[in-house]
């Protein structure tokens, strides 16, 4: 493994464009990794909200309180990362903790107590309970919206998946970058692949893919469903066969242990070429009649 360039390297104007773009990408990834668990849980939570809560709150006959509760759920989801981030900003770094261990800050009083309700724990409470309770209120006020007659089965299943992802993301701690990981990196030569893709193979495979895809454009205007399915099946099978043949030809170029002589190759393929010539000749004969 090699040492990765830090974000500072990306600001060097003399660095090549590829290095600068890689550094920018690293900065973005590092910012994303610094997001807390509540921010990561907010994405599936918003998905679950849009599928299961919002349609119920804005269904016909739902009271205004249900809409307000639904909006409160969204606010709980979206403001939880702020609560979590405020906690991180409030807690001083470790060196400062050691230096000011003797002089502890005074306990907040009155409304200032609210500023102490920050950090991952409070963010999780705000996110999970705020969202779940508001959703429960919506469903209680508009129970008919979740009946099987009005809720589509696929949408309901997707909502279950959304809620499961929200629960999973809320339960697990967010993955953060290990500050000591950089010290464990051993600088050395870059890793070499065990084998390299031979030059030209990609062209063969790409040609096979193009041919196979071109076949899929045939027969889309067939009116009879049975015939349309048959055409689709045949074109898919033919495409797979062509792709397999081009791959075989590409692979055959690299087997050099026992190269077949030109005479052997011709003798081996001669029956097939003869059958092909026979078919073509019979086809031409039938057309000319």
């Amino acid at each position: 493994m090699t040492n990765r360039p830090g974000p500072a390297a990306g600001t060097d104007p003399a660095a090549p464009a590829s290095v600068r773009s890689r550094s920018r990408r690293n900065v973005v990834l590092s910012r994303l990794s610094e997001l807390g668990a509540s921010a990561q849980a907010a994405i599936p939570g918003l998905y679950a909200w849009s599928i299961t809560v919002a349609p119920a709150a804005w269904s016909r006959g739902a009271p205004t309180v249900a809409k307000v509760a639904a909006i409160a759920g969204v606010i709980a989801l979206t403001t939880a990362p702020l609560v979590e981030g405020a906690g991180f900003r409030r807690s001083p770094p470790a060196e400062a903790n050691e230096a000011s261990a003797a002089a502890a800050p005074p306990q907040p009083k009155g409304l200032a107590v609210l500023s102490a309700w920050t950090g991952p724990t409070w963010a999780r409470i705000w996110s999970v309970w705020g969202f779940v309770l508001s959703s429960a209120i919506v469903w209680t006020l508009a129970p008919s919206a979740l009946s099987s007659a009005r809720l589509d089965g696929v949408r309901g299943a997707l909502g279950v998946v959304g809620w499961a992802l929200f629960a999973f993301a809320s339960a697990g701690p967010s993955l953060r970058a290990d500050p000591e990981a950089a010290g464990r990196i051993i600088a050395g030569s870059s890793l070499k692949p065990r084998s390299e893709l031979p030059r030209g193979d990609g062209v063969y495979v790409a040609a096979g893919v193009v041919l196979a895809l071109a076949m899929q454009g045939v027969g889309w205007g067939v009116a009879a469903p049975e015939r349309a399915v048959l055409v689709r099946l045949v074109t898919v099978v033919c495409g797979v066969a062509v792709l397999g043949a081009t791959t075989s030809i590409a692979l055959a170029r690299h087997v050099t242990r026992f190269p077949a002589s030109r005479r052997l190759r011709l003798r081996r393929s001669l029956p097939w070429i003869a059958i092909l010539a026979l078919f073509l000749a019979s086809g031409l004969f039938l057309i000319s009649r």
């Binding site: 045949v234 075989s248 087997v255 190759r265 011709l266 097939w272 059958i275």
Partner: peptide, 19 residues
């Protein structure tokens, strides 16, 4: 389709290595 299968088989046999 039969012509296609035969042509494909002939093409693969032409480049196949081995004794």
């Amino acid at each position: 389709l039969v012509v296609g299968v035969v042509a494909l088989r002939a093409g693969v046999q032409l480049v196949r290595p081995g004794a």
